[in-house]
Design a protein around this nucleic acid. Structure first.
Length: 616
RNA sequence: GCACCCGUAGCUCAAUGGAUAGAGCAUCGGUCUUCGGAACCGAGGGUUGCAGGUUCGAGUCCUGCCGGGUGUACCA
């Protein structure tokens, strides 16, 4: 059989089939039918995938059409040659039915044997990993996400990086990779200069004593307006306008405060030490609520001691040079903007920090891959940083910018409050939970006997889940319209629907008084004789394939879409076939499918960072 | 100006170069004396912004337009 069978009888059907196709295609090349280099084979094997329509079988291979021209033969004839070798490939016949003739222009359609399907599902039921194979070659992967500026309150703009990054990290870890998550905090930049300047010129000591976070937030927002000095903003804010009048040079002074901090000025350093715990406490509270954790939180300040060395190194290597008083790396022609690594005033930039971080991670963590989950507006920055890192000699690290679109309001414009302010993340979570509470509180038999505490817990789980799921279920590259009404719908591809599906599936075991552990241990055969049983079973076994696809393009929405499919297959199955009311082997088999469905859905949501509840 | 991203059903969105472009909402119809009905089955609705090109095959790749967004030397 293929190398994907695990110790618990785990099997990735698609991988097994691809392995058989590999043998067939290599045979094609060896027998002189078509010349195929080893390097081309992976791309050809990707053309083995699930069919669009069950009428064509379970999987299909489409490479015969692509190979026909170079083979100097008709596509169907090439397909026939592949089919001949496929059937005799090691392990093929154990899992799949004989392919039959090519269909249409040269599709090779394959159906999974019912007995193999039943056995694989049976194994999955008894398996903690639900039949999901781990990667053959685990990598060391750094996932860099969230990365807020700690000087200002987290807002709606931070939700996507945090939620998407967390989900990707969980998924890669479950796949078997060695994942290191790192929250690269903005704790050293100009925003801190703003707070320092604000502290020195317009602080409110009483307010700071009462609520340090709120006071620092106020200072940040105020000084940003003062530094920007936009007439329309100042017109609406007399306090800021007065400060601008009194300190016309505020913007430069803010930068000077930042520079003093960087140079080790004792006063600014002491203030920084004092402010940091306040800022950290603020963001940690939100992470706790989101159930997001990090292995490391190495902010910009951590890398500051290395920055001078980065500049010296790049200068010595001839990659960087002085220009208009600043130092930059010129990657393209003279007209292309360089990647600046030191400003004319001597201060470093975030490009410098990013480069230092890459080098530090390489030395200390030796990653194979680093994922940066950062919004798409920074794609040019990362292109430049990655290119510089490559020229600098940062080894074979695969540097990937996992970009995502902007969060928009329902009017299609960047998400703001009616007053035009950015929406605070915490207020957003509160509103989601509040709205969820209104829904789960609407009364029904399933919720009878729930205590107030249970209700609060359900509302929190559903509300936070809705916000996360809505984000994750969207293709991350496009802008995303934030709508509580949409995300909290009880039908369609939403968290509430998925969470309900889990509660409903698992409610069966309570209702029927069935011992799930015993059910799993009993190792009842699973039967797939009914098409609805078969469709559900096959779908459940695709879990591993789906996670593989999620990893390939860092796209959690592939997982949400599949979970929704699973729920749909289950609904069809459950509606049509009795479970608790069935007898004997039918009952045991169907209960096993229910058990696996519930666990797959719950694990899938867990990999997205979304919780579930027993009753709702 | 240049670079990148995006234009798909009335609305919100899917669709690793594959077969008849799919879901949800909304609309219309049907099923079952509820295993948790927050259900199931079905119908209508599309020139995938426009025009070319590559390919056995294009929503997807290439070129040019049109429309929207973002970025573009010292913020991050």
């Amino acid at each position: 059989m293929s190398g994907d069978g695990g110790p618990a009888g785990r099997v990735n059907l698609r991988s097994a089939l691809r392995q058989a196709f590999r043998v067939a295609i290599e045979g094609l090349s060896r027998d002189g039918i078509a010349s195929i280099s080893a390097a081309e084979i992976p791309a050809l094997l990707e053309q083995v995938r699930e069919t669009a329509d069950a009428a064509f079988g379970d999987y299909s291979g489409t490479m015969a059409m692509a190979l026909a021209k170079r083979a100097g033969a008709k596509p169907r004839d090439v397909a026939v040659e592949i089919i001949r070798r496929l059937q005799s490939a090691p392990g093929y016949a154990d899992l799949f039915e004989p392919p039959g003739d090519p269909v249409g222009p040269g599709f090779i359609n394959v159906r999974v044997r019912d007995d193999a399907l039943a056995a694989a599902v049976g194994h999955a039921v008894a398996d903690e990993r639900l039949g999901v194979t781990a990667v053959a070659e685990p990598q060391r992967v750094v996932v860099d996400f969230s990365s807020p500026n700690v000087a200002k309150p987290m807002h709606v703009g931070h939700i996507r990086s945090t939620v998407i990054g967390d989900a990707i990290a969980r998924i890669l870890r479950f796949r078997g990779h060695h994942v290191i998550t790192d929250n690269h905090l903005g704790d050293w930049g100009t925003q801190f200069g703003m707070i320092l300047w604000g502290w020195k010129h317009c602080r409110d000591d009483a307010a700071f004593a009462a609520d340090p976070t709120a006071e620092l937030g106020r200072l940040y927002r105020l000084v940003r307006k003062v530094a920007d000095a936009k007439p329309e903003e100042l017109a609406a804010d007399p306090v800021a306008a007065a400060l601008v009048a009194a300190h016309p040079d505020a913007a430069r002074e803010v930068l000077a405060e930042t520079a003093k901090l960087h140079e080790g000025d004792p006063e600014n350093r002491a203030l920084w030490e004092r402010f940091m715990p306040v800022c950290r406490g603020e963001i940690d509270r939100i992470y706790q609520r989101l159930h997001v954790t990090f292995d490391h939180t190495l902010g910009e300040s951590f890398f500051h001691p290395l920055l001078g060395g980065v500049v010296a190194d790049l200068l010595a290597a001839g990659l960087a040079r002085e220009s208009r008083g600043a130092i930059g790396v010129f990657l393209g022609g003279e007209d292309d903007p360089p990647l600046l690594i030191r400003k004319a005033d001597g201060a470093f930039l975030y490009a410098t920090t990013d480069l230092a971080t890459i080098r530090w991670r390489r030395e200390h963590w030796k990653p194979d891959r680093i994922l940066y989950v950062v919004d798409h507006r920074q794609s040019q920055h990362f292109e430049q940083v990655f290119e510089t890192a490559r020229r600098w000699g940062c080894g074979a690290v695969d540097l990937v910018h996992v970009a995502f679109g902007t969060v928009l309001g329902e009017d299609g414009k960047p998400f703001k409050t009616r007053a035009g302010d950015t929406v605070g993340l915490e207020a957003l979570l509160d509103e989601g939970v509040e709205r969820a509470a209104a829904i789960v509180g609407s009364g029904d038999e399933g919720r009878a006997g729930m205590s107030d505490e249970d209700r609060r817990h359900v509302a929190e789980t559903v509300g936070i889940g809705a916000i996360k799921y809505a984000d994750l279920s969207q293709n991350r590259t496009t802008d995303y319209v934030f709508s509580f009404d949409k995300m909290l719908q009880l039908t369609g591809n939403t968290a509430a629907y998925m969470q309900y599906a889990v509660a409903r599936v698992e409610g069966i075991f309570t209702k029927g008084g069935v011992d799930r552990e015993a059910l799993r241990r009993a190792g009842h055969g699973v039967q797939v004789s009914d098409p609805r049983e078969r469709a559900l079973a096959l779908e459940l076994l695709r879990f591993g394939e789906v996670l593989e696809d999620v990893e390939a393009d860092s796209r959690p929405n592939v997982l949400t879409a599949w979970l929704y499919d699973v729920a749909g297959r289950y609904s069809t199955f459950y509606d049509a076939l009795p479970v608790l009311k069935a007898a004997g082997a039918d009952r045991d088999s169907r209960l096993a499918l229910c058990d696996l469905t519930g666990r797959v859905l719950r694990r899938g949501l867990e990999l997205l960072g979304i919780g579930t509840v027993e009753k709702m």
